[in-house]
């Protein structure tokens, strides 16, 4: 049985099905992260102006250079992801392999840096239970890390075992990379907002 509209656009929507699917999923993700951003606003606005429970400046507690580096890593992984897709669109499978490999390596780099960052917080006895700030910091960045891990699993599948589809159905495979890319860029997009909100303000 053939799955319909994996490559051809569906006449009523104008896009292939997986593209509409991933965008609907990303719309739900906007609401998921949106709820947490909303919670952040609520507890920040509700914090006392002065005293030990006053809202801290992110850069007093968190490391800006580390987060800055991670921002660069994730943005770079976004361009290599889009290049992986563009390589397939230009029928250059070897280049796809290279760019996807770099994307995965950068994703792993992000996780390693994040791991060291979490570890240094724990060493300084900063836990989610320490303060409202640390609670929302660990919740939002933790959820984001889970998204990076999820993206890495999908990207790894498409890099090695799933790449066989390039032989049998190249157009469908190219679309898969586009869809995986849309998710990966979304994860980058969330971080672009997390970085100033948590670390700099």
């Amino acid at each position: 049985m053939n799955i319909p509209f994996t490559t051809n656009p569906r006449p009523d929507t104008g896009v292939y099905n997986a593209k509409l699917g991933i965008w609907l999923f990303l719309a739900s993700e906007v609401m998921l992260f949106g709820a947490l951003f909303s919670s952040y606003i609520l507890i920040r606005v509700g914090a006392p102006e002065v005293g030990e429970n006053a809202w801290p400046l992110g850069s007093d507690i968190l490391s800006v250079p580390v987060a800055f580096t991670n921002t660069m890593v994730l943005i770079t992984s976004s361009i290599t992801m889009v290049m992986a897709w563009a390589s397939l669109a230009m029928k250059k499978f070897d280049k796809y392999k290279m760019f996807m490999g770099i994307t995965i390596a950068l994703g792993l780099t992000f996780l390693v840096i994040k791991g060291f960052e979490y570890n240094s917080k724990f060493e300084h006895h900063l836990f989610p239970s320490t303060s409202n700030f640390m609670a929302i910091y660990f919740t939002i960045t933790g959820l984001h890390v889970l998204h990076v891990i999820g993206g890495l699993i999908v990207n790894f599948y498409l890099w090695i075992p799933g790449a066989k589809m390039w032989e049998s159905d190249p157009e469908r495979f190219t679309n898969r990379i586009e869809v995986a890319g849309l998710y990966w860029h979304f994860v980058d997009l969330v971080w672009i907002f997390l970085f100033p909100v948590l670390y700099l303000l």
Partner: peptide
């Protein structure tokens, strides 16, 4: 990111309306 990497500037209307 959304406009260029995610192709939203040239995407079909249904996607943009959903968003």
């Amino acid at each position: 990111v959304a406009g260029y990497f995610m192709h939203l500037f040239t995407e079909k209307a249904i996607i943009n309306w959903t968003l």
